[in-house]
Computed example of a mutant assay.
Amino acid sequence: MRPAELDRVTVAEAADRYVELVRARTLTGGLSAATAEVYARDAATFVALAGADQVLDDLTGEDVDAILLAFARKPDGRRPSTTGQPPSSSERPPAASVGSSVGSSVGQSPSSQARFRRSISALFKHATLAGWVQVDPMAASTVTARQRGGLRPERRALTREQAQGLVGAARSLERSPGEGRRDQRTELRDALVVLLLATMGPRVSELVRANVEDFFTNDGVRYWRIFGKGGRTRDVPLPAVVAGALDAYLARGRAASPDKALLLSWRGRRLARGDVQAVIDRVQARVDPAQRRSVTPHGLRHTTATHLLADAVDMDAVRRVLGHSDLSTLGRYRDELPGELEVAMRVHPLLRGPDPAQ
């Protein structure tokens, strides 16, 4: 159980206590000496980046993000620096730098970044149990560790204006396909890819796995039978605009091929997962720069969930659209939107209709 009172220890003191505990575990065989030293080294780096005199409980998720990214940029001593003088690793960047690029040729390797995140996660987990922090700030961190690609800011939903700009660019492609040989034009396919991702939020694996036969009509409504995780399937109705884009692509844009895949390259082969980002980027290039923001396929899945939920669509319906087995999973896909609280208060349900003062 957690202690009744919070112990406001500094970062340095918390790290010292934690490392002492970790090293004690080597005496009982619970941890190897080499692993304990890795934890100790990472704890020392954490102290240098966070600030030794900083109170541990005062660190926020944004602070953790800044620390993780500062570590990612920290020169790797095993590789030579190309700049001559490496930047000081003791300078802690502002939280606003979370969106900066990481993973330069002289920075930490992806595996080192992932290991460092695990180390400080373990430290904060112990700190929560010991009563050194009220809330584990790792839960609010938006920077995650990946074995490939290193640390990166979590992908987020597009705003309504950005999403509408992207959808509008896709629809303009559908209305005015380009010049050249019909079997080498990809505009209708690109439009369909973006519309499916932005309005229905499939996983990229579900999108590229789709076959023509997975789309059917029932009572005048077009459906997509999506084959998702764990062998589960879901039938999701297509918005009218998306159904129109599908029909246009099948009639005029899909390359002739015996392959049953829905999305084909101009050579007639099934589109690969890695090709989808290039499709999004091509459509994004047509968006007005004031509305443009780079986004990944998974970011468009966030976009679908966020805007459906923001528009008061039933949570269980959104869960079924995305193919989640549990409602609790939706929390990871719901992102804050600028101005949404102001809108919510303007249209408060208790203040609609008759004057409440009467």
Rank of each mutant, 00 (worst) to 15 (best):
S119W: 02
V102D: 11
Q108E: 02
S121A: 13
L173A: 09
G103V: 00
G149D: 13
R152V: 03
V133E: 10
R160I: 07
G103Q: 11
Q134L: 12
S109A: 14
L173H: 09
Q134M: 10
G168Y: 07
L158I: 03
A127Y: 03
T159A: 06
S172W: 03
L123M: 13
S105A: 15
V106P: 00
A130Y: 04
R118H: 06
P153C: 10
R115V: 03
S172A: 15
A169Y: 08
S101I: 00
S172I: 00
R117Y: 03
R155M: 06
V135F: 11
E161Q: 12
Q147S: 12
G149E: 10
F116L: 01
V102P: 07
R155Y: 07
R175S: 15
A139W: 03
G99T: 07
Q113R: 04
F116G: 05
V102K: 07
G168A: 08
R146I: 00
M138I: 00
A169E: 09
W132T: 03
R156K: 14
Q147L: 12
V167T: 08
E161A: 15
S172Q: 15
G103Y: 09
R146M: 02
A169D: 08
S109R: 13
A127W: 03
L151W: 05
G168F: 01
G99L: 07
A140Y: 11
Q164I: 00
H126M: 02
K125W: 02
A140M: 09
G165A: 09
S104D: 15
H126C: 01
G103L: 11
E154N: 11
S121F: 01
Q147R: 14
L151P: 00
R148W: 06
T144A: 14
R156Q: 14
R156I: 06
Q162W: 06
E174I: 00
E174Y: 02
Q162D: 08
A157N: 08
Q147K: 10
G168L: 06
S104Y: 04
V135D: 15
R156H: 12
G99V: 01
D136M: 04
F124M: 06
H126Q: 12
G131M: 05
K125I: 00
S119I: 00
